[in-house]
Amino acid sequence: MSLAIELPGLSLKNPIMPASGCFGFGREYSQFYDLNKLGAIVMKAATMEPRFGNPTPRVAETAAGMLNAIGLQNPGVSSIIENEVPFLASFSTPIIANIAGSTLEEYVEVAKAFNEAGDVTALELNISCPNVKEGGIQFGTDPKMAAKVTERVKKASNLPVYVKLSPNVSDIGTMAKAVELAGADGLSMINTLTGMQMHLSAKRPLLANKTGGLSGPAIKPVAIRMIYEVKKQVNIPIIGMGGVVNAEDALEFLLAGASAVAVGTANFQNPYVCIEIIEQLPKTLAAYGFNSVNDAIGKGICS
């Protein structure tokens, strides 16, 4: 069965990829399996300058999920291009660079840097990180700002741009339509939901950052609902994510309208989860009467 899928600027041998921030720059998981097996690799977010991120504790377990507040820690775009991209380029798997910034200019500079460096196949525009004080989420909650950053990044590079949407908005359809109109080649959704956990004995929030982004199976129904809503309103493809742990979950995302599926938090529990889903997906598609990945996309949407 064919698992291949064509997205703007991205030819994927299968629709499964690790989600940004849950896979570092691939080195750690390459000791468990051959990264050539993945549909794509999405790198951890890059900013212009190195960022240390938030104080610890940065993670907290929740019912069926976890909160994180890493704070976009990364060595900066130049170091990523010099030290991380060449390693990933040794595999025949498309590389998607997740780009973040505090200002419009920073997004543009980071996009330019990846565009000039080569080896990166597409950009994922991170306008939805809930864990940094400035930028990031502001671009992700105001449709005008989101459109503006999309437009500027599109102009700054030749790479296809997938805009990663935040679920922390009242109307995700408006956000999606705004970035589509601004030239986005695709969408990536959803990022984490803002949450908080209290530490009982300390009588204060457990995370040093107080709030964090909720991920894992707990958010899957939210992701499915938002993809379903957005798919009906836009004509660009969606990379879906949010709590995927097995091939059935991946099919659910395809049915809701996603054309590819990213796996995040589940990598922490099972480092082999991405390739296990890739191996299982043909059987799961067949079990529900589909002959290919393409066959299943959006088939769950009722008129």
């Binding site: 921030g21 849950c22 896979f23 570092g24 080195r27 750690e28 998981y29 951890k44 240390f52 991120g53 610890t56 504790p57 940065r58 993670v59 994180n68 890493i70 820690q73 990598n267 922490f268 480092p271």
Partner: peptide, 8 residues
Amino acid sequence: VGACFACV
């Protein structure tokens, strides 16, 4: 395993 940057 060193991928998520939680325990720095």
